[in-house]
Simulated assay, not measured.
Amino acid sequence: VCLAGKGVPPQTLQTMVLKLPFNLSGQRELHVHAEPLWHSYLDNGHWRGGFRLATDEQTATLLSKLVSRYGE
C-alpha cells in the first residue's frame, strides 16, 4: 500500500486504525500494522512511501473489499 504525509516518514513498524465513514460488514474501524519499505519526498514537502500491511484474516478480507470497490 502507498501512504503519504508531511514531515518525516515512519522508519519502524506502525500500528494504525483506519476509521471508515460507513459500516463495512459491521465494522467502522480496521486495525493494521504497516511496515515501511521505501519512501521518497515530493516537491511540496510531503513524502510518499510504500508499506507492507499485516493484519488478521477478517481485516484482510475487508481491506480487499475496499480495494475492489474504491482502489485505483
Rank of each mutant, 00 (worst) to 15 (best):
S25Q: 09
P21W: 07
L30R: 04
P10A: 08
L18H: 04
L13A: 08
F22I: 09
L18T: 05
R28E: 14
E57K: 05
S64L: 10
D43A: 14
N44E: 14
M16F: 04
Q14G: 01
G49K: 10
L42T: 08
R69K: 12
Q14Y: 05
K6G: 00
K6E: 15
G26E: 05
V32W: 01
T59A: 02
L30I: 10
G7L: 10
H31S: 05
K6T: 13
H31M: 06
R28F: 09
E35A: 05
E29D: 09
K19A: 14
K19W: 03
L30S: 05
P9G: 06
P10V: 07
A54C: 03
V8G: 00
Q14H: 02
H33F: 11
L20Y: 04
S64W: 06
T15C: 05
V32R: 01
L37H: 09
L66V: 15
P21E: 12
G5S: 10
V1T: 14
E29V: 03
S40N: 10
R52V: 11
K6D: 15
G49S: 07
Y41W: 09
F22R: 12
G26F: 03
R48P: 00
C2F: 13
G26P: 03
G50A: 06
F22P: 02
Q58W: 03
L62K: 04
T55R: 01
S64F: 02
A60E: 13
G71C: 06
C2P: 01
S40Y: 07
L63D: 03
A34K: 02
H46W: 13
Y70R: 09
R28V: 13
H39P: 01
S40F: 03
S64G: 12
L20D: 08
C2H: 11
K6L: 11
L20T: 04
T55K: 00
F51M: 08
P9E: 14
G71T: 07
Y41K: 10
V67T: 11
T55E: 05
G71L: 05
L13T: 14
L24R: 08
H46S: 14
T61A: 10
G45C: 05
T59H: 02
S40K: 13
P9W: 12
Q11V: 10
H46L: 07
L24M: 10
E57Y: 03
V32G: 00
D43S: 13
Q14F: 03
H46M: 14
L62S: 02
N44Q: 10
G26N: 03
Q11P: 00
R52I: 06
P36K: 06
V8Y: 09
Q14P: 01
